[in-house]
Structures are given as C-alpha cells and as structure tokens.
Design a protein around this nucleic acid. Structure first.
Lengths: 192, 192
DNA sequence: TGTACATCAGTGAACGCGCGTTCACTGATGTAC
DNA sequence: TGTACATCAGTGAACGCGCGTTCACTGATGTAC
C-alpha cells in the first residue's frame, strides 16, 4: 500500500524518533528492527526502503537524541537558575528513571566505543555541540578554562547518572546523585 | 575426558577470569559462551557443568573484575602519590586503550542497569568496597565528607574515561582526559 | 599396593529461537496524455 | 478535469546465521575392595 510522499517522510521521521528512545532504553543490541518498526506503527519489511542497515539508523538516532539532548533543553528552559539548575535537573531522580528520553551518554555511553564508525562520528559531533552549549554557563575566566570546566563537569554528570542507575540499592543511588550535585554545583559557586 | 578436581577448579577459575576481560572488551551481549570457553582453552559444551547460565557467569565475572579493580591496584601501588597518582593513572591513555583489564564501570557501566538482578547486586557490592577503598584518600574533613567526595570523584573519572573512549576524535579524547585530570586533581589540592 | 568399576569433567553435535536482511507481492499515489 | 498506467511505500513470508542451552557420549579420575 503506497503512501503519500509526505506520509513517507513522516514515517521515516517517526522511525528515527522511536529508535532514539528504544536504543536508549534497551541498548543498541537490546532492541530489534522489527520492534522499532512496530513502535513507529509499521511492519519490519519496509525498513530497508528508508535505511541501509540497522547501524545506519543507529547513527541517525544518535544524532537525533543529541539534538534534543536533555541538557540542552534544560539549559534553554532555565535561564533563571543557570548552571546550578542544569546540574540539578540532570542529576534528578526524574532523569534517572527516564532513560528513554534522557541523556544519550548516560543511556548507552559505554557501548559507543563498540559501535561502527558512523555512530561514533554522529556521537562525537553531538558531544562537541553539547559542550559548546554548556561552555557559556561555566564560571572560568578564559574561554579555554570554561571549555575545560564544561568537559569535566559533563563527565561528572554522566558518570554519576550511570552509577546511580547501575547500582541496585536505592539509598546508595540517591547518595550518588546528592554527592555529585553538591560537588559539581559547589565547585562553581566557589569559583564565581 | 575427565580431569583432576584441582584442574576442574582451575578451569572454572580461568573461565571467570577470561569472561571478566571479554565482557569488558565486547560488552555482555557482544561475546558468546562458546568464545569465552575457547578463551579458557575449553569447548562450549562443558560450560553448564560450571555455571547455571551465562548471566550467572556474568555476575561472577563482575565480582572478579571489581575485586581486581584497576583503581584498587593503582591505589595500593602508589602510596607515594596518593590521590593525585590514582587519578592520573585512571585517566591515562594506557587505561583508555586497555578496556579488557580496566575499570568495569567504564567498560560496561551503562549496560549494568539492563542486567539481571544477580549482576547488579554483584556490581553494587563491588562499588561499595571500591568507594570504601577510595574514601581514605579523600581530603574532606569528616568521614561523611570524604565519602561524598569519593562518590563524586569516582563519577567524574568514570564519565571522563567513557567519553574519551566514545569520541571518534583523538584530540578531543585527549582533551577530555586532560580536563578531567586537571579538574578532579586540582579540586583536592585546594581543599587540602 | 593392585585391580575393577563407578563417577563425572569435558566433547561436539544438535535444537530452538530471535534477529538482520531479502524478496515477491499489493494497492494507493502520482504522472502522462 | 478525467482516465490509464507506471511507480513505489509498505506488507508479510522466508532465509541464513549466531547464540544460549541440552544431551548422549568418552575416557581419565578416584574409590571400593
């Protein structure tokens, strides 16, 4: 059953959107093409009319996930709070429990190194622009210092969120989030 | 072909060792039972004489990986340098390129949340003892403050190593390691 | 200590399942007149 | 504007492969006498 060109484009877009959430929820190996297509309201056979391979979709899905990056939207919506508010939002229980729509790096970060070139390239580009967005919120004196701070802070946030999810003990999980919020939030208070 | 009881125990031990490196290198889903057994010099059929399932082995392999944890040995061998030396070793290019024998959290951290209960429990226990080891190196005044610092620092190190591996650009990768080394190393200089 | 037998660690073929990918087909879309 | 036909987005069956797991079998170990 053919479909309008606009409908086809919308379908493709939906597939990428769904994939970007399902990959984050289940990991690259934890979700199949058939389930992604079902999530987009289609059947698996039509997949290869839109993409060359599952890896090809993964690369696009990563770009999509990073363009709607959690941190980015938090940053843009919290003009008031600035860096402190971004950190609090990133390290919130809400973000911890919403893997599918949260930060790509926290969701599949340690698997990226094992992905094909196209995926890693997409992720690298997304990360660069993420750091660029975050840089302006940093308290350092020079632009170079702010960039360094953005890199280290991002690392701290991602690591803390990953650990808070990995751990089986809710008390320890909360403790990780609170310690990281205090540490990474305080450091910039001192410097500003 | 039966084998000495000691030999059988040694074989089991070897399987766990090999698994702990191969899981870190390829991820839980990226390596199969047959390849792990081959790595231990055995054939896949004998696997279920030693373990109930692949997940069962994964739990043991995580415990093993964390008992020989990179950071732990770095800490114990660097009485001189203290925290600074530990951080430098953790964030070294050497550790970045040696996933198979490096930190479990940096290798498969974002996948742990998707693993069965036994694996998450093993990881949680290993993490608790890791933090306990690291705590004494921290500069905070009270024990509680030192623990908080240990948690946040560990998060920063893990996040930085994951990012440095994920990224496709060697320059950016180095920049991440250097920024994190400077930031997490410096903070404690200020406090001490 | 030596012999006979039971045990059981390890082997390799086989099973069942899920997954990525292919393909012949369908029928609505979009175009040529 | 209306009609006839070509295009092609989507369908669902099928293929091939790898993986976790099972099982009948082998032969060295370890035990009973």
């Amino acid at each position: 059953m053919k479909v309008t060109r606009e409908q086809a484009a919308a379908n493709r877009d939906k597939i990428v959107d769904v994939a970007s959430t399902l990959f984050r929820k289940h990991g690259f190996d934890g979700i199949g093409v058939a389930d992604i297509m079902k999530g987009a309201g289609l059947t698996h056979g039509g997949f290869y009319g839109h993409f060359d391979s599952k890896d090809d979709l993964a690369a696009e899905a990563c770009t999509r996930a990073l363009s709607r990056e959690w941190l980015k939207s938090a940053a843009e919506s919290s003009e008031a709070g600035g860096l402190e508010a971004i950190i609090r939002a990133y390290l919130s229980p809400r973000h911890r429990s919403d893997r599918a729509r949260g930060c790509l790096f926290a969701a599949v970060g340690s698997d990226i190194v094992r992905q094909p070139r196209a995926v890693r390239r997409a992720v690298t580009n997304g990360f660069q622009s993420l750091i660029d967005s975050l840089r302006s919120y940093m308290p350092g004196r020079s632009p170079a210092a702010r960039r360094k701070q953005a890199l280290a802070t991002m690392a701290g946030l991602i690591g803390a969120l990953i650990l808070s999810r990995a751990v089986d003990d809710p008390t320890l999980s909360d403790e990780i989030l609170e310690s990281a919020t205090a540490t990474f939030g305080r450091r910039q208070d001192e410097a500003s």
